[in-house]
């Protein structure tokens, strides 16, 4: 993977007996939205912190933009990194604007950008209020504004949408999309799989400190060969005819009662089943085809 902007090679991080990260190899390409998914405690946040140089690795190496993350020259790379920690915490005594100005000074970013960023994340109205009075969602927005300071080329967002309402989550991913369109690389973690499945370019599934699989969602689906699920609604009395018509295909699973049947089909048999349903023609009222979700894929790999 030559175009990787983040290269993780044999990364191991142990806390005493706990193997939080246990031999991870991963390449994240410039300009993609990369999702790191896993149960709580799978090692996502630890891997994140090692990627940012916040924790030293027990073994292995991580390079970002060609620089070792704990190396002397990583400081320059940091200027181009935005980071939103999980459960971000700010200083209660500062206002939103002061908070952002503080981090802007640390990053060497002109303070003039702060007010605009707060508008962008929907906090313009609360810019002069103290963070003490902010809701969880507002703190998260402030965290995002902080991560966006200085137009970062690489963004690390750890569980970025916790505490956000559905509308804010949608706005958040619009923002992330814009960043990607500008050429930024976005790495995010989540345990809400339904939320990120349509929004990441590639993802890695992490379990017990290891990467179980890496790829696009469709690639992972195909690799797992999870069955598609047909939900078929029939005219009264037609269930027997469908079961009969499907019998030659040797499908293991045809379930359901009365007029509603659920048929699990290997991806290879998809067209054959559709053919059967087409032949039944007016006896079929409705069909829903469910692709396996990221959750199904995830559960398959994490099992």
């Amino acid at each position: 993977m030559t175009s990787a902007i983040i290269e993780i090679t044999g990364a191991v991080k142990h806390f005493g007996e706990v193997r939080a990260v246990d031999g991870v190899d991963l390449g994240i390409r410039a300009g993609e939205i990369f999702g790191l998914i896993g149960h709580n405690g799978a090692g996502k946040s630890t891997l994140f912190k090692t990627m940012l140089g916040l924790l030293p690795l027990t073994a292995g190496s991580i390079r970002i933009d060609g620089q070792a993350v704990r190396g002397r020259d990583f400081r320059e790379v940091r200027r181009r990194i935005g980071y939103l920690p999980e459960n971000v915490v700010f200083y209660d005594n500062l206002s939103g604007l002061e908070t952002l100005a503080f981090f802007a000074r640390l990053k060497g970013v002109a303070a003039g950008a702060c007010a605009g960023l707060l508008e962008k994340v929907g906090l313009g109205h609360a810019a002069r209020r103290r963070v003490r009075g902010y809701s969880k969602g507002m703190r998260q927005r402030l965290g995002l504004a902080q991560a966006l300071l200085g137009d970062p080329a690489i963004l690390f967002l750890d569980e970025p949408t916790t505490g956000l309402d559905p509308e804010a989550i949608r706005e958040f991913y619009v923002l992330v999309g814009e960043l990607r369109d500008r050429g930024a690389t976005v790495v995010l973690t989540s345990h809400i799989l339904a939320e990120i499945q349509a929004r990441v370019d590639r993802l890695a599934i992490m379990k017990s400190g290891r990467i179980q699989a890496t790829g696009t969602l469709s690639g992972l689906r195909e690799a797992m060969d999870l069955p598609l699920v047909f939900h078929v609604t029939l005219r009264p009395g037609a269930a027997g005819a469908l079961r009969e018509a499907l019998a030659p295909l040797g499908l293991p699973e045809v379930q359901g009662e009365g007029d509603r049947l659920v048929v699990r089909v290997a991806r290879a048999d998809k067209m054959a089943v559709l053919g059967v349903l087409a032949r039944l023609n007016d006896r079929v009222v409705d069909i829903h085809v469910h692709e396996p979700s990221l959750e199904d894929v995830f559960l398959g790999y994490a099992a």
């Binding site: 912190k49 915490v89 990053k107």
Partner: peptide, 14 residues
């Protein structure tokens, strides 16, 4: 303890 250290350390400062 407050949880603000990680963010500080991710900034370009030693």
């Amino acid at each position: 303890e407050r949880g603000s250290l990680d963010l500080l350390l991710s900034m370009p400062l030693t």
